[in-house]
Lab assay of single mutants.
Amino acid sequence: SIEEEIKKAEEAKEKGKTFIHGDFVATTEELLDELLKRLRKKL
């Protein structure tokens, strides 16, 4: 679910890890923020 993806992305951000969502690879905090923004729009 979208909620689960958001939670996983937030955890990755806290730990400074890379998060992959489909073909979107978030390797930096900026990219994770962008991904979180996109996911929240889908809610």
Rank of each mutant, 00 (worst) to 15 (best):
L43N: 03
K17N: 13
H21C: 15
H21S: 13
F24P: 02
A12C: 15
G22I: 13
F24R: 00
K7F: 07
E11N: 04
E11A: 08
E3M: 13
L31W: 06
S1T: 12
I2N: 02
R40E: 06
F19R: 00
S1I: 07
G16L: 07
L43V: 02
I6F: 01
D33Q: 05
E14N: 11
S1N: 09
L32R: 00
D23G: 11
L35E: 02
E30M: 08
E30H: 11
G16E: 05
A12K: 00
K7T: 08
V25I: 12
L35M: 01
A26W: 10
K37F: 08
L43F: 08
K8A: 11
V25C: 01
T18Y: 12
E30P: 03
T18D: 06
K13H: 03
I2H: 02
F19Q: 03
T27G: 09
R38H: 15
K8D: 03
G22F: 09
I2K: 03
K13G: 02
T18P: 13
R40Q: 09
L36H: 01
D23S: 12
E34A: 07
K41R: 08
L32N: 00
R40N: 11
E30V: 06
K8Y: 05
E3F: 11
H21M: 10
G16F: 09
K15W: 10
A12F: 01
F19T: 03
A12G: 02
A26S: 03
K8T: 03
L35A: 01
E11M: 06
K42A: 14
F19I: 04
S1H: 10
E4Q: 09
L32D: 00
A9D: 02
A9S: 01
D23A: 12
L32H: 01
V25R: 03
E14L: 14
E34N: 04
L43H: 09
E34V: 05
L39M: 03
L43R: 05
A26R: 02
E14H: 10
D33S: 09
A9Q: 02
T27C: 10
V25W: 12
L31F: 06
L39H: 02
E34K: 10
L43I: 04
E4W: 11
A26G: 02
K7S: 07
E30C: 15
E34G: 02
K37E: 15
K15A: 13
L35G: 00
E5T: 15
I6Q: 04
K37C: 15
L36Q: 00
E4S: 10
K7Q: 11
E14A: 14
E30K: 11
R38C: 15
G22V: 07
E11I: 07
E11F: 05
G22H: 09
I6L: 11
K17Q: 14
E10G: 02
L39Y: 01
K17I: 15
G22W: 13
E29I: 15
K41T: 07
V25S: 06
L32A: 00
E30G: 05
T28I: 10
E4R: 09
A12H: 05
L35N: 00
E5M: 15
E29M: 14
K37G: 07
E34H: 06
K41P: 04
V25A: 10
K15N: 11
E30N: 05
A26T: 03
E14C: 14
K15T: 11
A12N: 02
R40D: 10
F24K: 00
K42D: 11
E34I: 10
D33N: 11
R38I: 15
A9F: 04
R40V: 10
K42P: 06
L36F: 01
R38M: 15
K37N: 11
L36A: 01
E11Q: 07
K37V: 10
